[in-house]
């Protein structure tokens, strides 16, 4: 369902955030394909179990690093989604909230009028 009032174009930051979401969706697909590679090797001679183990652990580590790099912007996107009413203009997230771990609580963003 298309969101009726969602803007068609986003500013640079919002655009980047969307593309990180896309990357987060692509990552497991890519990972699955790479995990299946040893299946093909075995048929054509292969590296042997030791080589395959090294390959898989390196791949595993790379996937974890990629996920870790994306987790922070995604967490901010999630924070934005959770603390704001729908389609309202974005309120900047106070930097302390994400750095000190205060984001663990559902504190609403500070009222600018207060």
């Amino acid at each position: 369902m298309a969101k009726p009032n969602a803007p068609m174009f986003l500013e640079r930051q919002g655009y980047r955030r969307r593309r990180i979401m896309d990357a987060a969706r692509v990552l497991p697909v890519l990972g699955f394909i790479l995990i299946l590679l040893p299946v093909l090797w075995t048929r054509s001679g292969g590296l042997g179990t030791a080589g395959e183990a090294v390959y898989l652990f390196i791949l595993w580590f790379c996937l974890i690093v990629a996920a870790a790099l994306m987790s922070r912007p995604l967490k901010q996107a999630l924070h934005r989604e959770l603390t704001q009413p729908h389609h309202a203009p974005p309120i900047p997230v106070p930097p302390t909230a994400t750095q000190t771990g205060a984001s663990d609580t559902h504190t609403p963003p500070p009222d600018p009028a207060a």
Binding site: M21, A24, R25, P28, V29, G31, W60, L63, A66
Partner: peptide, 10 residues
């Protein structure tokens, strides 16, 4: 499970 977790956004 690794694939499911790195694809948590899905």
């Amino acid at each position: 499970p690794t694939l499911v977790f790195i694809g948590w956004w899905w």
